[in-house]
Design a protein around this nucleic acid. Structure first.
Lengths: 317, 317
DNA sequence: GTCTATAAAGAGATAGAC
DNA sequence: GTCTATCTCTTTATAGAC
């Protein structure tokens, strides 16, 4: 059986190479620039070979999405230890925005590209309200975290969750990173409510959605609107968090309350801009982050579908 | 000179036809599906003819953007009359979300497609803080409004602002709809602050940006995330507005100190869904609005640039 | 498994005849 | 002004040789 195993391993390896190449292309040129030909060229294989591993460009995109969700989840994990639920939520909010700013193309792919990509990670949102306990969420998250560290070193480091078992069902193996992340937030919210710091009549699910929308709005505008944060991104995030979680005087990072101050990760207290991803990448920063100058992000043409030209913006205009 | 005038009129007319066709394509199939060939086919001209009126696809897109901004501004105009600044802001927020939900493709084009499109409308955001008085904003808005009613009847009715003089400088004639809309909001905000209902130490520009981000987040998630508003969109918007502008329950809203609890205008209370646009269109509604099932939105290929395929989602997958 | 070659579709933009 | 014809470029995806 050694032979079949070797073959299986080789197949897996090629699969990884494909995803690595795809990830690099997306990071560098945006999702719109991702094509089978480019990937094939990058790994020095013919385009046809890719179809032996992925049924379509879309399947590759979904695999990348799964990685992205896991990556986002991973940034949440250490924050679960923050004792005060309000501070925890603030830290989560900052981490969320920091993630989006640091990984614009990943964020775009996951939350701004295609409804099917976005929906892939959020399966049980409706019924999720009282489902997972903080402990359970942490357990799941921990598993994902551990799996990640096994992954590649040079690249953003994810992959395991996605490539391990998510060949056809990208974002929903047994534990769904998207749901797990959601649960972390909902748990904090319920604690908050239990502590009487949130109106008892408030539906946490609604609150959570509106809160999420605020964070998403900040990230999305930052990635799309060139003039968005006139003020420092930090400040805007601070004001938003204060509006939702109360505290006078925006601006600075309330950070962690007390006990968790010893946190090994500085991520919770550091201002949004200084966020550094676990993988060790530089992490983009400031208000106008990466966004590969000339090229944008959007959609490409399909076989029978359509696609206009827009990238020319910087190229031809 | 009658002859040159007629020719000029005919040229203008064709220009309008081009934009009309383009608008229809975008509404129906999304921006990504907008191509010169399609437009040409729709108006029964050759593709080459389009280039006599627009230098590129991009220029057409920008003209559509200008229309979109004007359209959005128009929905703001009547709300300026609301006396209470907090209620006015809430009404503006609801109108904003309603607009995005009712005109998903327009909203996408303007705020979610390309930074250059989004930035086109917001020129003086940075210095806008104390710039325009409510009166000035209304004056601008009124002008745009008036201009609009001259425009076509069957179609969404805009165009004048864009087509009148924005051949090469699409979104910034003399009065910029984007800025005007922004000023309307900032004015209300300053009134709020003047009335002592907003922390004196709060920077209105920052507050405005964070508030805008919240609204944008709600719309953007609604358009992109299939499961987004688990709760009725109305409810989520209400919670968000309360968080920012205060009202009994809802977390605690440190932003606003007291009052503003008695709501008078029904326009401020009307649920988002019931919004009807001034033009008299049906106005889409509910949580999962249009979003032309099969197709998405994104970017197309340029001459030398790149472009993957993505639309296949529903077509080939 | 992998490649070459190609089908089938789409795009933006232009030259030059009329 | 308008059209025809064309150039150049992109893409996904597959057939069939090796």
């Amino acid at each position: 059986m050694g032979i079949v195993e070797r073959k299986s391993r080789q197949k897996q390896a090629l699969r990884e190479r494909i995803l690595d190449a795809a990830r690099r292309i997306v990071m560098r040129d945006g999702f719109a620039a991702l094509s089978m030909r480019k990937i094939a060229e990058a790994i020095e294989y013919s385009p046809a070979t890719l179809y032996l591993h992925f049924a379509s460009r879309d399947e590759i995109a979904q695999a990348l999405c799964a990685e992205g969700y896991a990556q986002l989840l991973e940034t949440f994990v250490p924050l679960v230890q923050i004792a005060d639920p309000a501070e925890r939520l603030k830290a989560l909010g900052r981490a969320y925005v920091a993630f989006g700013v640091a990984h614009p193309e990943t964020y775009r792919l996951i939350f701004m590209e295609d409804p099917s990509y976005t929906g892939a990670a959020l399966s049980g949102v409706a019924a999720a309200s009282g489902k997972a306990t903080p402990v359970a969420a942490v357990a799941d998250a921990g598993a994902a975290h551990e799996a990640m560290e096994i992954a590649a070193a040079g690249t953003p480091a994810v992959g395991s969750v996605a490539s391990g078992k998510a060949s056809l069902a990208p974002a929903k193996p047994d534990d769904d990173p998207g749901d797990a992340a959601l649960h972390i937030m909902l748990s904090a919210l319920e604690e908050l409510k239990a502590a009487g710091r949130l109106s008892a009549s408030m539906d946490v699910a609604v609150w959570a959605e509106a809160f999420w929308a605020t964070l998403h709005g900040i990230v999305a505008l930052n990635l799309t609107c060139p003039v968005f944060p006139t003020a420092p991104l930090d400040t805007v995030v601070g004001v938003a968090l204060d509006a939702w979680l109360g505290t006078q005087d925006a601006g600075q990072s309330p950070g962690v309350t007390s006990a968790s101050r010893s946190r090994k990760k500085k991520s919770a207290e550091a201002p949004v801009e200084s966020y550094v991803e676990p993988g060790g990448e530089p992490a983009a920063q400031s208000s106008q982050p990466s966004a590969p100058s000339g090229k944008k992000s959007t959609k490409p043409p399909g076989p029978s579908a359509v696609k206009p030209a827009t990238k020319r913006k910087a190229a031809s205009a």
